[in-house]
């Protein structure tokens, strides 16, 4: 498989140096995710039982790709945390399902159960006879218990981060903010001085948000890695296929929908103008 650029890591180094946008990085990242998806799909079809170990490097590479994403995100977040929390590179469909600027960690288990369920319905009779299918329908007792434990832990951590986010968001109406807003409304400050006071007041809020985002991203990546660790390489391949396909398709559907809405708005405006 060719490893020609742009790869996310190469691009990451490059883009940071060049002062490029995260959006550009994200687009490159998606292109690479698409390639990974193709590789995963063909690996899932080709590899026979004897060759399962060969899947490990592929799984590792795909997981690393996710790691790069979070490294890049953390870098860009230091420059502009607010952009990371309302990502313009996402569609409004994706926006609607975001949890602190990304996917909700507990979603990882629904993804697993859904994909596992689809494979199980397809091979129920084999499983009933005690045959091994090797895919996600074949989660063992130990795996199921590990997944269940990880799910509970993840939900608990997710709630903790959500609580912290709530506390942080509530500080938007703390005394200093309210005082400043009133002062600025009454116009006691010179404009320049006002701006510096605003910046000073917002800085700790943004720092707080950056901490929350870091925790959220850490939980996302940890959850993904821990799920992969529970699975066999073959199962991991199936899981990563489902993850990538869902991510890419939702992005695609959302972008199309946004384009359609924009199109309608334009048409509507033109009609109004000409009326």
């Amino acid at each position: 498989m060719s490893t020609s650029p742009p790869q996310s890591l190469t691009y990451l180094t490059h883009a940071i140096n060049e002062g490029d946008t995260f959006e550009r990085f994200f687009e490159c990242w998606l292109v690479e995710q698409n390639k990974h998806l193709d590789e995963l799909v063909s690996a899932s079809k080709e590899v026979d039982a004897a060759d399962r170990g060969a899947l490990r490097p592929l799984v590792k590479r795909v997981v690393q790709h996710y790691e790069h994403y979070y490294v890049a995100k953390a870098r860009w977040a230091t420059a502009d945390i607010l952009a990371m929390l309302s990502p313009s590179w996402r569609s409004s469909l994706e926006d609607a399902f975001l949890w602190i600027g990304g996917w909700r960690p507990s979603m990882a288990f629904h993804l697993l159960y859904s994909k596992s369920g689809l494979q199980l319905e397809a091979r129920l009779h084999e499983l009933m006879q005690g045959l091994r299918t090797g895919d996600l329908s074949d989660l063992s007792a130990a795996q199921l218990q590990q997944v269940d434990a990880l799910q509970k832990e993840t939900i608990r951590k997710e709630q903790e981060v959500t609580e912290k986010q709530a506390e942080q968001q509530e500080t938007v109406a703390d005394t200093s903010m309210v005082e400043l807003a009133l002062a600025m409304t009454e116009g006691v400050d010179a404009p320049d001085e006002g701006q510096s006071r605003v910046d000073a007041a917002l800085a700790p809020k943004q720092d707080g948000l950056a901490v929350i985002l870091r925790m959220a991203d850490q939980l996302r990546l940890d959850t993904l890695k821990k799920v992969i660790d529970i699975l066999t390489p073959t199962q991991a391949v199936h899981y990563l296929i489902a993850a990538a396909a869902l991510h890419l398709r939702i992005h695609e559907w959302g972008k199309k929908r946004d384009a359609r809405v924009a199109q309608n708005v334009t048409t509507h405006n033109i009609e109004e103008d000409s009326a």
Partner: peptide, 14 residues
Amino acid sequence: SRKPPSPPRSPGSD
């Protein structure tokens, strides 16, 4: 079916 099954597809049975 769990009376010593020897499924051909279960080399890695845990």
